[in-house]
Nucleic acid binder design. Structure first.
Lengths: 193, 193
DNA sequence: AATGGTTATTAACTTAAGTTAATAGAAGTG
DNA sequence: CACTTCTATTAACTTAAGTTAATAACCATT
């Protein structure tokens, strides 16, 4: 499993032998079972997660409803950012949608660690920027596209997601009800025939 | 104007005398006139902006329409993040909605600068995290609230914005048409009387 | 293979947003 | 101050999403 981690992390940065050894000895690997909600709102985030294998859903609870904000798959970092930064209770919930294995990175900024292994600081910054870019794209999509257009965009950019994730979650991620997504799909399948 | 910068920046971090002097000598201050679009899509971002005074609108051009994604006011950092990180043409446009003064921070990560003045690195990370938290809140709002609820939320969290920004831009920021925002306002004013 | 439980689809109806256009109101300019 | 221009509101109509409920399709378990 650690080898898979190395493979994914090489997409971000080339770690030194020392850094790899340190990660192996100090960054825990954890596994969650399908559908397990392993981080609950109200808790204070202490760690940054990295998906080695599987798929994680970020959702908010609103009036007993779950509203999906994002999906994280292999090679992605995630955490309850605001909670981590401000030491406040998180509003986020994280759920494994498949049997999922993650690596836990230390809470940042960890200046002592960064001084010893500067690549971890670079890595963390890359992860932050990556997440920010993704978030900005989602916002762009919400302000500039209709639900139908967002659905079409998602198929284009991440068709694989539909093979892994329930449609109700995708509907929520698009900001609409499952019924509306069903209608959109019907509309599109009819207009293309 | 530099004093105003120091006042705002103190909300983030305490800079050393050396860092303050360096900023004064190396980080340019620029002013834009009301309505000026000072950064256009298609350009490649080279700088991080910091608002010293005024208000900046981030918008995307879609089929000749302008879609507002965010407003930046005093004390906020902004830039075309993806363009800056990947050296690709930006999709963002930035427009001063008032006469606006900004400070230009160097493109990051600037490892040489960070080594000499570590606080700039910390500052940049704080700015990134701040922007990410804001983005995540906006996404939470889009997936979990109706336009009307987003409008009510915005009044609660940032009423001052309504004194500074045209309603059409706020409508776009909420993901709806100006006419819809007008209707929402009417609905709410009637139901509260 | 049969069962029970979950997920997706469909339908009928309600509500609200999009669109086009006209009007009223506010702000900026000479 | 008058004029022009831009912005916000209103109206009428269209389109699509929300909602509730029923049904169909799919999965998991035994």
């Amino acid at each position: 499993m650690f080898d898979k981690f190395l493979k994914h992390i090489s997409e971000y940065i080339l770690l030194t032998e020392e850094e790899i050894t340190f990660a192996k000895n100090h960054f825990p690997i954890k596994s969650y079972t399908k559908n397990e909600v392993f981080f609950h709102e109200g808790n204070i985030a202490k760690r940054i997660y990295f998906v080695i294998e599987g798929c994680v859903r970020l959702f908010y609870s609103v009036d007993g409803d779950e509203k999906t904000a994002y999906f994280y798959t292999e090679g992605k970092f995630f955490c309850a950012n605001e909670s981590l930064a401000k030491n406040t209770p998180a509003r986020e919930n994280f759920q494994a949608l498949e049997n999922t294995t993650v690596m836990l990175f230390p809470k940042t900024p960890d200046e002592a660690l960064f001084k010893k292994f500067p690549n971890f600081e670079v890595l963390e910054r890359l992860a932050l920027v990556d997440e920010l870019i993704t978030s900005n794209r989602i916002i762009e999509s919400f302000v500039s596209k209709s639900p139908e257009e967002r659905y079409i965009e998602l198929i284009k950019t991440n068709k694989a997601l539909f093979q892994r994730v329930h449609q109700q979650y995708i509907a929520s991620y698009l900001g609409i009800s499952p019924q509306s997504l069903s209608r959109i799909r019907k509309r599109l399948s009819q207009s293309s025939n």
